[in-house]
């Protein structure tokens, strides 16, 4: 629940104009911005560029934990309470691979959900959010120090933003 930094919030009606503005902002050196869209829009996605989500690290960590715990659990159980089944060796890897695989998937999926929740809560109070961005408008919030605000404001208006306001 971080306090929002000061910046500029611009609202757009058209996708291509918004995408244009994102590119222009990046050219001006404002790489850090938050974009709100009512629906997933590929043009916007492309304009922002590909950034990998931090959630994938959670998935990897969870998956590897699952693999290791699957191995540890089956092996520990086999040797802690030795029962020979079907004449096979006590710690037989072939059937345990199935359990290791399932636990990889299970913990991987659970930790992905956990990571999703964790990162969503951290950004819960998003800066400058405008409820209309859940309806039919596209919003771009740019964190921006006071001395550069007028330049950014002018540029966004020039590009065709329907509304530009300063958020503190």
């Amino acid at each position: 629940m971080s306090k929002s930094p000061g910046g500029i919030m611009a609202v757009f009606e058209h996708v291509d104009v918004a995408a244009d503005s994102i590119r222009a902002l990046k050219e001006m050196g404002h790489k850090d911005m938050t974009v709100y869209t009512p629906a997933p829009l590929h043009e916007i996605e492309e304009a922002i560029g590909h950034t990998s989500s931090p959630v994938r690290r959670w998935t990897l960590a969870g998956g590897l934990t699952g693999l290791a715990s699957g191995f540890a659990m089956t092996m520990w159980m086999s040797y802690d309470y030795p029962v020979v089944v079907g004449g096979k060796p006590l710690g037989s890897i072939p059937p345990y691979i199935v359990i290791m695989f399932e636990l990889t998937i299970l913990l991987g999926a659970l930790s992905t959900v956990a990571g999703l929740v964790f990162h969503a809560i951290r950004n819960y109070r998003a800066a400058g959010y405008d409820p209309r961005c859940s309806d039919d408008l596209i919003g771009i919030f740019v964190p921006c120090p006071v001395e550069r605000r007028s330049a950014v404001e002018d540029m966004l208006k020039d590009k065709g933003a329907t509304e530009v306001k300063v958020e503190v």
């Binding site: 079907g86 004449g87 072939p94 059937p95 691979i97 199935v98």
Partner: peptide
């Protein structure tokens, strides 16, 4: 491959 291998391994 593995599912066939596993069954054959089990049945022996």
């Amino acid at each position: 491959t593995y599912s066939q291998f596993l069954v054959i391994w089990y049945g022996n």
